[in-house]
Amino acid sequence: MSIEETRLVELAKRGDADAFGLLVKDYERKVYAIAYRMLGDGEDAKDLAQEAFVRLYVSMKSFQGECSFSTWVYRIVSNLCIDRLRRKGKELARCSLDAPVQGDEDEFQRQVPDMSPGPEEIAERVELQEAVREGILSLPPEYRAMIVLRDVNGLSYEEIGEILGLNVGTVKSRLWRARQELSRRLSSSELLRAAFVNPAVKGGPADEVR
């Protein structure tokens, strides 16, 4: 934690909205990214990320520096996400598969123009990304948090342990199971195999995935 951040945190604790605003600027992208990958829907993610920051602001006074500020931020957003997913899971156990597909079209369209390779390759890459995305969203909340924090956002085992209140051993084994589960859902990794082990293979087996 840099000295500037420490100072900003101190000011924000005293209720300085501008200081908090700067802290928000530093973290909003990451927080939103975590929420988006956990929930799979832009609107939900926005709402949850903002809620996380509001909570952060309100509980700023109770932050004693027992962990780094970033850990604290990620803890709040991760817990909110897991809570919401659990609640949602109880409410609509069956329909949840449809919801992400809606969001997909959106992202699908946005990402196509960004990629420079030929159209077939683009299709394959997007398909693969889509498959992974959906795969993540089909995982149970605890596994999803593992993949999102570690593989998507690249946090260390220690950080993840602090964020989720687990010891490093548990983080390791849970991450291992989460990855296994994800690769099983990627339909025996057919798509991955096609894309990475033998990049020349054409005609992505998109149907096998769904």
Binding site: A17, K25, E28, Q50, R110, Q129, D151, L192
Partner: peptide, 27 residues
């Protein structure tokens, strides 16, 4: 190899664009 490919794929998902006006709305 497959596991590494999978992890790489996940890492590619990290770039999420913040919705317009997120900061203002939040503040």
């Amino acid at each position: 190899q497959l596991l590494r490919a999978q992890i790489r794929c996940c890492a590619e998902l990290s770039d999420v664009k913040l919705p317009d006006g997120f900061h203002e709305e939040l503040m």
